[in-house]
Design a protein around this nucleic acid. Structure first.
Length: 463
RNA sequence: UCCUCGAUAGCUCAACGGUAGAGCACCCGGCUGUUAACCGGGCGGUUGUUGGUUCGAAUCCAACUCGAGGAGCCA
């Protein structure tokens, strides 16, 4: 008999209606009366379950009726129209085979669980409705990103996970070493002798692939990275994880405006792709996670993102009829409350804040003609905050070196990065998209721990 | 790292100084079209840990552990 995926049945019912089919999957719930019962079966291919009707003409009716949730079954039967109101079709079972038993103490129940509890059973939570939807959308969004860039002739670069430069500048890093902690080698001055370590130097997990991506940008014109990123910051918030995924495009012969246009087009592409490919999951989020989700995404897709300079933003915030805990002043970084006010109260949609004071931004960002701001951009979105950070890069060698000197950086650590400016350096730009933050925005999930399959956060790496 | 809140049955919660309870789950029984099925019965606890106050502590106090929210850092 033909094995059919539940997704095939839902997407193409005419082909299967009235025919003999075989499905296999896991029991989500069983409801039984004296001589018949219903099984809701999820086969993993589709968000929704298929209803199985079985009765006591089956030789193992009594056994099936008492099966616990999560039991794996194979069902042979006929796909028929369902008299019930909640499902268009069902399978009238002619044979039910138990593929894998479960136990009555299966922790996932037929009721709503808290997300906090589900985090403690990360190995089982993908079987719940919410996480089934989250991780299918995550998969689709990842594919959408590759499709978006590949369709535009971008080259996918695998920048290294282990980095030899501890000066990538984006915060605390995880150390990578094979040295024996019980017997650490020392140099002549008593410091740890990393010459004896695996790579012969200090190494860490990457905090960004940008500097390496820039090298490929100067060869392939338009490139992107998409991979894991690690930050050892002691951050305890719903928006930070120690291991997360980042998308970092880098485009040559391009300025900040090109950069913003790319970011906006990319986000809209991802949203559209997920809405098209996972309508059931998106409808679920809208119903149970965030009732404004679909309206908000629709608004994002059909409107232009806002753009405001840092200087304009400061003026707006100064005039705001709202008391901020932190003072608003030119030269100070925007606080979370300021960003929320801008994107949630004023714009009510994604907004780029551009042209920040150079003092509060990274050394590689291109100096504007005013001499005191750089061509940086942060994309702020309601509810999630900063989702993208990027800039036009400083391609003028003397200006880059001057800026590095101001920041106290050693040219020797960046010799290959500086040579990009020496040999045919051109204007270029790029940004980093926090993949999980994009998924949060896309699904309405409020905690980054609930969009990562096995989240790594401070004091937490059990699974 | 700082601030705030929380931890009671497998889960979600109640009890707020005087004998620890409910719903759901689970187990048993009933039910011929269910929809987080329904109806009846049953099982289920060293109240996060350690110490203190008190005749008496789930309840008050302290420390610790873990969790959540806010802040900082950022994506």
């Amino acid at each position: 008999m033909e094995e059919v995926l539940v997704k095939q049945i839902f997407r193409d019912p005419e082909t299967y209606l009235g025919r003999a089919v075989q499905v296999s999957g896991w029991v989500r719930t069983i409801r039984v009366s004296k001589s018949f019962g219903f099984i809701e079966l999820n086969d993993g291919s589709f968000f929704h379950n298929i209803q199985i009707v079985f009765d006591d003409t089956l030789p193992n009716f009594q056994e099936i009726a008492k099966l616990p949730i999560a039991t794996a079954l194979r069902i042979e039967g006929q796909l028929v129209e369902s008299p019930g109101a909640k499902q268009p079709w069902e399978i009238k079972a002619e044979r039910i085979t138990i593929e894998g038993r479960s136990e009555p103490d299966y922790p996932l129940q037929k009721k709503r669980h808290s997300l906090e509890f589900l985090r403690t059973i990360a190995h089982l939570r993908p079987r719940s409705n919410t996480f089934s939807a989250v991780f299918r959308v995550r998969s689709l969004a990842a594919y959408a990103i590759h499709r978006f860039f590949q369709e535009r002739n971008f080259v996918y670069v695998h920048t290294p996970i282990i980095t030899g430069s501890d000066c990538e500048g984006a915060g605390q890093m995880f150390r990578v070493t094979t040295l024996d902690f019980a017997d650490i080698p020392r140099d002549e001055e008593g410091r740890v002798d990393f010459r004896q370590d695996f790579f012969g130097r200090e190494t860490h997990l990457t905090v960004s692939g940008q500097l390496e991506a820039e090298t490929f940008c100067m060869a392939f014109r338009n490139v992107y990275t998409f991979g894991p990123t690690f930050r050892a910051e002691n951050s305890n918030t719903p928006r930070h994880a120690a291991e997360f995924w980042m998308v970092e495009p880098e485009i040559a012969f391009a300025d900040l405006n090109d950069n913003m246009a790319l970011a906006e087009e990319m986000l809209k592409y991802i949203i559209n792709y997920c809405l098209e490919q996972a309508p059931e999951e998106m409808a679920f989020f809208n119903r149970f996670i965030d009732p404004d989700l679909l309206a908000r995404l629709d608004n994002v897709v059909n409107s232009d993102f806002g753009v405001i300079t840092y200087t304009e933003a400061i003026e707006l915030l100064k005039k705001a009829d709202q008391d901020f805990k932190y003072p608003v002043a030119w030269g100070a970084d925007l606080q979370t409350e300021h960003e929320r006010y801008l994107t949630e109260k004023i714009f009510k949609k994604p907004v780029f804040v551009i042209d920040y004071p150079k003092e509060i931004k990274a050394f590689y960002m291109r100096l504007n003609d005013d001499g005191r701001t750089v061509a940086a951009m942060d994309l702020l979105v309601p509810g999630v905050g900063e989702i993208i950070g990027g800039s036009q890069r400083e391609e003028r060698l003397p200006l880059l070196e001057a800026r590095m000197k101001e920041c106290g950086l050693d040219f020797a650590d960046y010799w290959w990065y500086l040579e990009l400016r020496k040999y045919g350096g051109t204007k270029h730009a790029g940004f980093g998209l926090g993949f999980e933050r994009a998924i949060m925005y896309l699904t309405g999930m409020a905690n980054i721990r609930d969009v990562l399959p096995f989240p790594r956060t401070v004091k937490s790496a059990e699974f």
